[in-house]
Amino acid sequence: MKIAVLVKEVPDAAVEKRIDASGRLDRSGEKNLNPYDTHAIEAAVQLKEGGTIPVEEIVAITAGPAGAERALHKAVSLGADRSVLLSDDAVAGSDVIATGYALAKLLERESPDLVLLGQQSDDGENYTIGAVVGEFLGYPSLTQVVKLDIAGETITAERQAEYGYDTVEIDLPAVISVGDAINEPRYPSLKAIMGAKKKPLEKITIADAGIEADKVGAAGSKIECGNFTEPPKKSGGTIIEDEDTSATVEQIVAWLDERKLI
């Protein structure tokens, strides 16, 4: 079986996110592999190591600027066997549908049995790309999967739902976005770090992948962004000066009671 893991390079969690002059996310600061994707890589590695089903290959795939190579090196250091980077200026500014289309075209070249991805990106936070990719490929897709068993051609998945867990059975090939509760990703080993650049990394253009230029990038995106405003400042809260402790306690209890919190 071949597993493809969709990954993304995102601004590092420590970087304050800002919109640049062109109306896109400012990506000039420190960047990292989307932390949610590390759970998808770990899930793939665990399937490979688990041995219940033979996994021949794990391929990490991304669409992004040339610098996204570093995110792929990290993905490989965490257990992917090789990686594919779609790096083409035409893709910049793609919305979720356009990105999903481009990724689906990349996946068609690989024809994996299973596509895994993280529950969300740490920058866009759409939570939807897996479903979009599944739709383009005609594969069933599941979100928020926290337990994954594969027997033959059938996946039994447990997914986090609003009021508990759903157990769902679907057939391969499928697109599964995993919740971050599915596993605790391992740390990269020294050997994997030093060997990451020796693993194949294929850089391709939209032409290589058969991606139609007018379906990606700003031109291929229906979502338009604008009229950005700063998020509202948090109010300062209420400060109760503690002059008489029993009076203070009464005030706090009254405040909580008023809001039906106790």
Partner: peptide, 14 residues
């Protein structure tokens, strides 16, 4: 190098 940064990050994270 990327490797140096990755080693530093991995040790710190662990």
């Amino acid at each position: 190098s990327d490797e140096e940064l990755a080693i530093r990050t991995a040790v710190r994270d662990i």
